[in-house]
Amino acid sequence: MKVTFGTLVITAGICGILSFAFLATSLGTNYWYIIETNPGNTSDLEDTNYHLGLWSINKGGKMYTVSSDSFTTDSVMYSETKLHMLNMHSAIVVMLPLSLVLLLFGGICGLVSSLARSPVLLTSTASYFFICSLLTLCGASIYIIYSYQAETLVGPENLADVHTSFGWSLGLAWLSYGLELLIGALLLIAAQMAKLEYSRPSMA
């Protein structure tokens, strides 16, 4: 089956819509990090489960603002470390929303470059999506480091009866990252096909 220019750009467009939807859903939900206290006691699960998002924590249906205090028990002992944690969190909440905004503009650029069949515009748009994917990658990676450092602050002795895991919100961010890479690759291939189409008349 021969892959056409139209098939490539349509596939890239669908991937773009999915990537935007995944990242937007990821940013708007509170299942980035899950903390379950006393997992063996089912009667306490509803009251002791924490579902963390980038900006808020869901505990028993009540929402709380995320800060480094959510992970530490003694704010005096960890003042310098807490500042580092806050800086990491600030980087996360800047990179990922910025990547979402760039995805929106990238979709517009992708539509224009596809309609124009311009190799230069298609290549530029592909590079643009690679930059978007880099922001998403950095944001998701920093969040993982941020979470592990938060566990270190709490201490292993305090986590003996606690089960922690990354949630599906983070998984959606990784899916968005993979789709952004795929979009960039598809647009690069489309750019090469458009370039070949422009070169054919000159070869005749």
Rank of each mutant, 00 (worst) to 15 (best):
C15V: 03
V9K: 13
S113P: 01
Y143P: 01
D161R: 08
C109I: 09
Y31K: 13
R117A: 06
M77K: 14
F5N: 03
S43K: 11
I131M: 02
K2N: 13
S176G: 05
T37I: 15
G61S: 09
V93G: 08
G28S: 10
T42L: 12
F166V: 07
L196Q: 13
C132A: 11
T29W: 07
Y128K: 09
T4K: 04
A173M: 12
L96Q: 03
G61R: 08
L196S: 15
Y198Q: 15
K59D: 06
M63L: 05
L115N: 08
T48G: 05
Q149K: 14
P97W: 04
S79A: 01
L188S: 09
S118K: 03
L175A: 12
I145H: 14
N158Y: 13
S75A: 06
E80S: 13
L52R: 11
M95G: 13
H51G: 07
E151W: 14
I131K: 10
G155S: 01
L182H: 02
D69T: 07
A91Y: 06
T65P: 04
N38G: 12
A204M: 10
S133H: 05
V93D: 05
I92C: 07
E46K: 14
T25W: 15
S169F: 11
L54F: 10
S90K: 09
L153K: 00
K59H: 03
C132R: 03
I17D: 01
P201C: 04
K2E: 14
D74N: 12
I183E: 11
I144R: 12
S199P: 01
F105P: 09
V120Q: 14
T136Q: 14
G171R: 00
G60C: 01
Y198V: 06
S26V: 09
Y148L: 07
L121R: 14
S202G: 15
L104S: 11
K59W: 09
S124D: 07
N41Q: 00
E197D: 10
S67T: 02
Y177R: 05
V120G: 01
L175N: 09
R117I: 00
H84V: 11
L196V: 02
P156N: 10
A140Y: 07
V94H: 04
E151L: 15
T29P: 06
V154N: 14
M85K: 08
A24M: 03
A191N: 01
G60A: 03
D44S: 15
F166I: 04
T123L: 12
L18M: 07
T25R: 13
K59L: 06
W174I: 15
L135S: 04
N87M: 06
H163Q: 04
E157G: 10
N158H: 13
M1V: 00
A126R: 00
L134S: 08
L170S: 03
S127K: 08
T42C: 11
W55Y: 15
K195E: 11
Y31H: 15
G184I: 00
D44N: 08
Y31C: 11
S118D: 06
G6C: 04
Y198N: 10
I57K: 07
